[in-house]
Design a protein around this nucleic acid. Sequence first.
DNA 1: AAGCGCGACAACCGCACATAG
DNA 2: CCTATGTGCGGTTGTCGCGCT
Length: 236
Amino acid sequence: MEANVGLRKGEWTEEEDASLRNCIEKYGEGKWHQVPLRAGLNRCKKNCRLRWLNYLRPNINRGPFQEDEVDLIFRLHKLLGNRWSLIAGRLPGRTPNDVKNYWNTHLKKTRLASHEKQKSNMAKVEVIKPRPKILKNFSWIVAGEPTTSTEWRQPQLVASSENEINWWENLLVDNQLAIVGEGATSGTNIRNGVVEEHQTREAVSNENWLGNDWSIDVLDYMTLNCLELLDGNMMN
DNA sequence: AAGCGCGACAACCGCACATAG
DNA sequence: CCTATGTGCGGTTGTCGCGCT
């Protein structure tokens, strides 16, 4: 239990900002429990951390979101959901809070509107994009067997053809997230990794693959590898 | 001019996870 | 293991400003 009684809350003054900035510049980020004392601030440590991360940190881009940033937010949100820190990680200068606020105020309703529109058009649409058969050829390379049940090696997503890269690109556009789940669950190599351990322990079925914590780890790796793959592809 | 509603964004809060002892 | 503490994240709330009636 923290004794936050008597601590200042609400808007930060210029003096407080300056004290916090000086403190971080002198001692560096981290050790937030020491920051209020070091900076001479009557604020709780979480308050200090938040102010630094969301507002005072250098290179924060406080300008309006550009079209390409918005586009990327849309794509990443389809892939990751409300994982703002991961999404913000792909947007230089943007904080998770910024991205979250922007989504909630600008994009949420746009997306809901397009979803409703999509639903109303569903009867007319046969198949826009067939389910890619390429998925079964996807391979996860696990560098080695995990040494303990809680330790595992990072799997690496490998695309062996142009088609696979194109499919991943489409994934980012068309929200085929469930297919990722099925693919990874049925992947042979990943079963040899810790995922298999979690599967047995949690008795996970294909149906609820995405609803479990361990799937997030796998999804993170898939996402990052996927994005790096795409970055590499665009460079070529 | 006053009141109201709403959008934008900063800040707060509670929870979960990591780690040290 | 268990507990305490530190840290990070995401949902939610509070506040301010602007436009409309």
